[in-house]
Simulated scan of single mutants.
Amino acid sequence: MNYKELNKSLKNRELSPVYLFTGPEQYIGHMMEKTLIGTELAKGLEPLNLTTYRDKNLDVSELLATCETLPMMSNKRMVIVREGAQLDKISDKKDLDGIAAYLEKPCPSTLLIIYWEQPDKRKKLYKSLIKTGTLVVFEKLDASDLKAWITRRVNNANKKISRSELELFIQRSMYLMNEKKTMEMVDNELNSLIDYAGDRNEITKEDILLILPQSIEEGIFKLIDYAVSGQKDQALLMLNHFYLEGESPFGVFSLLLRQIRMLLMVKIYSARGLPAKTVASEMKLAPFIVNKLLKTGKHYPIDSLWEIMLLGADLDAQMKLGEIDQNFALELFLMKIG
């Protein structure tokens, strides 16, 4: 189940007594958690019916006793086990058997939510959870869902954003290109943007450019453009700019390899006759990113990109082994990919 399916089931009042929240977008899980608190716990009595475990050395007997406790003047009692409680680290057989026994027959008036971002599917605990509980995987949003999320947030703030400005915001946020970028970060940027707009109804291009200055990931595109087109002096100037901004040679090199890998994948899909929109869907990227990658690499054969990847892998190994200076390796890489 994903977050949209969970949201639909909650609206239909199809609740599970146990939820296992996994995946990288735990922020969305926290939002769904707030929805449950708002709909299932009696107003004003939340402190009496909500228990959260977040510290290490979790007392399993206390947890189970709380789960069995009836709610006070409320439809439900909620018990939340954060990742920090390290429920997955429990090895005591008695505790594990106790949890398994509860999961076999959970208290119907209790909603138990367990956060486990990267569950070990081999563990008995995981098997017990998915046997009787509901697994919810909060993956990173794709381009379509991201647009819908941002539009909804802007509308809720009584603001408007045009299609071109929406695309610019997504591009500047780098959410679809940076695996470490989360929706919590995107929401924080949106809040800053909305606050900056103030009493104005419409969010402008100038607002976005000010609140979300160019990131290194976006600058990497220009660096590749310069290197590929033979503008070596410009490429080296941009590289020095990254250094002045505090970026390390190895960090820039890793981002370069990542972008070239994406370019290679886009070229492979395109060579199979897939249109840009389909490629974007397959790679879970925004269409403008695919178009940008195609434009960057239109004069670059797939074989050449493979050679660049092999060169990059070789230099990467040499850098990690200390066989070559990082600065020199990166400059050498830029000289050879044009």
Rank of each mutant, 00 (worst) to 15 (best):
M1Y: 06
N2V: 02
Y3F: 13
K4I: 14
N7T: 08
K8I: 14
S9I: 04
S9E: 10
S9F: 08
L10F: 12
K11S: 15
N12Q: 14
E14L: 05
S16N: 02
P17K: 05
V18G: 00
P24K: 07
I28M: 06
M31S: 06
E33G: 02
E40G: 12
A42Y: 08
N49V: 00
T51G: 10
T52V: 15
T52N: 12
D55G: 04
N57R: 09
N57L: 11
D59A: 13
L64A: 13
A65C: 13
T69H: 12
L70W: 12
P71I: 03
M73R: 11
V79T: 01
E83F: 00
G84K: 02
A85W: 07
Q86H: 11
L87G: 00
K89C: 03
K93W: 01
A100D: 06
K105N: 00
S109W: 04
T110H: 02
L112K: 03
Y115M: 01
W116C: 02
W116G: 07
Q118M: 13
D120G: 05
R122C: 07
L129G: 01
L129V: 03
K131A: 06
T132Q: 10
T132K: 09
G133I: 01
G133D: 08
V136F: 08
V136H: 05
K140N: 04
L141E: 05
L141S: 04
D142Q: 06
D142Y: 03
S144H: 15
L146W: 12
A148L: 08
W149I: 10
W149S: 00
I150T: 02
I150D: 03
T151H: 08
S162G: 07
R163P: 08
L168H: 00
F169Q: 06
R172Y: 13
R172T: 13
M174D: 15
Y175F: 14
Y175M: 11
L176I: 04
L176C: 13
M177N: 09
E184P: 01
V186D: 12
N191V: 12
N191G: 05
S192P: 12
Y196G: 07
A197T: 15
G198Y: 08
N201R: 14
I203Y: 06
I203N: 10
K205I: 11
K205W: 10
K205Y: 09
I208M: 09
P213G: 03
S215M: 07
E218Q: 06
G219N: 08
I220H: 04
F221H: 01
K222V: 10
D233S: 14
L237V: 10
M238N: 12
N240L: 00
H241L: 09
G246N: 14
F250W: 03
L256Q: 02
L257V: 15
R258Q: 15
L263K: 04
L264A: 14
L264K: 13
V266P: 09
V266I: 07
K267S: 11
K267H: 01
A271R: 04
P275G: 03
P275M: 08
K277Q: 14
T278A: 14
V279L: 06
S281A: 12
S281I: 03
M283H: 02
K284A: 01
I289P: 02
K292W: 01
H299I: 01
H299K: 10
Y300M: 14
Y300L: 11
L305V: 06
G312P: 11
K320I: 15
L321W: 14
E331N: 11
L334A: 09
M335H: 13
I337N: 07
